[in-house]
């Protein structure tokens, strides 16, 4: 099995990271996968406390030949717990290695993630600076706004309608998407204005 096929198989079996909460509750794991026009992201992180997380992160280009692999350390810088809302500022960081058709190099990334969420409204922004040798040098911005038509119980399905805007290396993508929450699982499905499919999922446990 070639490198490309191995990566494709891995991306189906494992999980990603943008817009998964970078830190979860104490002693919990978060598994994420993201697929869109910028490529594929897989991530797994463990939160020893609700203040920081440690994990692994892998991202590939859409053609799967170029990728980088990062050991991550994310921190909750500030949280506002309000009666019917929550707002957060997270710091994202990591170092690792990059791969370009078998050629290896170093890699590092850092960024900020900000969100404000009520039970019916979501506003979020995230940026990430990436240096991955011969594979990637970029500053990635993602903004999201959306709403939920109703609030569901913990064990019931809650839908969200979101609009996502991504900008990286002079390329911008606008994607309307549907987010579905139920228990500890979140799934997102969208189609960008350029016709590319978005499929993300997150599980916490």
């Amino acid at each position: 099995m070639g490198n490309v096929n191995r990566w494709a198989l891995l991306s189906l079996l494992l999980p990603a990271a943008l817009f998964a909460r970078p830190v979860s509750y104490a002693d919990s794991w978060t598994l994420t996968q993201k697929n869109d026009s910028f490529g594929h992201i897989l991530s797994l992180h463990y939160s020893p406390t609700a203040r920081y997380s440690l994990g692994v992160f892998a991202q590939s280009k859409p053609d799967l030949n170029k990728a980088w692999y990062i050991a991550t350390c994310n921190a909750l810088l500030k949280r506002w717990n309000l009666p019917s809302a929550q707002a957060n500022i997270f710091f994202l960081s990591g170092v690792g290695a990059s791969r370009n058709k078998g050629r290896m190099g170093g890699a590092a990334q850092c960024g900020l993630s900000l969100d404000y969420e009520t039970r019916r409204i979501l506003i979020a922004y995230e940026n990430r600076a990436v240096y991955a040798g011969h594979v990637e040098k970029s500053f990635h911005h993602i903004g999201r706004v959306g709403f939920s038509p109703y609030v569901a119980a913990f064990d019931a399905l809650q839908p969200w309608i979101l609009l996502q805007y991504e900008y990286k290396n002079s390329k911008s993508v606008l994607t309307p998407l549907l987010r579905l929450y139920r228990n500890n699982v979140l799934v997102e499905l969208g189609l960008s204005t350029k016709g590319t499919l978005l499929f993300n999922w997150i599980v916490t446990f």
């Binding site: 909460r21 979860s24 509750y25 919990s28 609700a50 949280r79 506002w80 717990n81 309000l82 009666p83 019917s84 809302a85 929550q86 969420e117 009520t118 039970r119 569901a152 913990f154 809650q158 929450y181 139920r182 228990n183 500890n184 979140l186 916490t204």
Partner: peptide, 12 residues
């Protein structure tokens, strides 16, 4: 304070 989603509920 701060409960907004099912992930919050699961965490608690």
């Amino acid at each position: 304070k701060g409960v907004v989603c099912s992930f919050c509920a699961q965490g608690i």
